[in-house]
Amino acid sequence: MTTSSTPTVPSRWERFRDSFLWYSFKRDRTAQLCLAVFICMVIAAFASPLLAPTDPYDLRHIDILDSELPPFWIDGSDERYVLGTDAQGRDLWSIVLYGTRVSLLIGFGAVLLQALLGVTFGLMAGYLGGRVDAFLMRLADIQLSFSTLMVAIVVGAVVKATMGSAFYSQYAVLMLILIIGLAEWPQYARTVRASVLAEKNKEYVDAARVMGLRSRRIMFRHVLPNTLSPIFVISTVQIANAIISEAALSFLGLGMPETHPSLGSLIKAGFDYIQSGSWWITLIPGAVLVVLVLSINLLGDWLRDVMNPRLYKG
């Protein structure tokens, strides 16, 4: 792929610069702010070993005597801990940074898995039709009628009970990605199927078929690129959903262990101390979670307005 361009063939960057997407982004303050917040949070989270003053996974830095110190604007705070400490004496600023990293990692991983499964099944259902379509969509219907959170909770509970909590917490990140990924693939499958059905009867598909290309090649190389915009739109919302699902599972004790907390398990751990007045242990990670999810959701809203794909309703 050459990046240099002749006047007749615009490069990718030029095409992007002239696109409606970029045009509307330049005019939408909310979208700009949300993207800035989101990018800052992602960078801060993945640079947490550099930014955090202490390593919350390292027990040597933790002193139980420092526990439940309030953040800086409240009397009795300690200048070493800007946002205070949690019940184990861990620096809240550091642990929230690390926790955001865990939450984002699971969110991205789960959405990647969902997209992989959902796009493949959606393409197959839409393009091949017939029995494959009926079977896959019935499966999706059944799973969706159970609400994705319910499926995730049940699968998480069963896996935890089968494998034992020690094993489960050791591989918690992987488990959560698998559980949330498996629970939400029908969203992708339905969206992709709907747009494949719209694309399938167009002439370029007929042309490819007449040329004798195999179904798999037509599906992935010809039809898939034309269904990308709805996939793009639901991906943003799905990342927000996956992060919330992870937080919910962790809050129920089916997610990340407290030694390796995500935002959800930080909220859970802090909730036990809210009655004693230490509200910051639970509400600061909570606020971070809300800002993260809100910025993604607002971005998703903006994308949906701009790209205006035919999303599956309901």
Binding site: I244, F251, V290, L294
Partner: peptide, 11 residues
């Protein structure tokens, strides 16, 4: 939509 239900409850 962006606030998880358990966080609403805690607040």
């Amino acid at each position: 939509i962006s606030i998880p239900v358990f966080l609403t409850a805690i607040v």
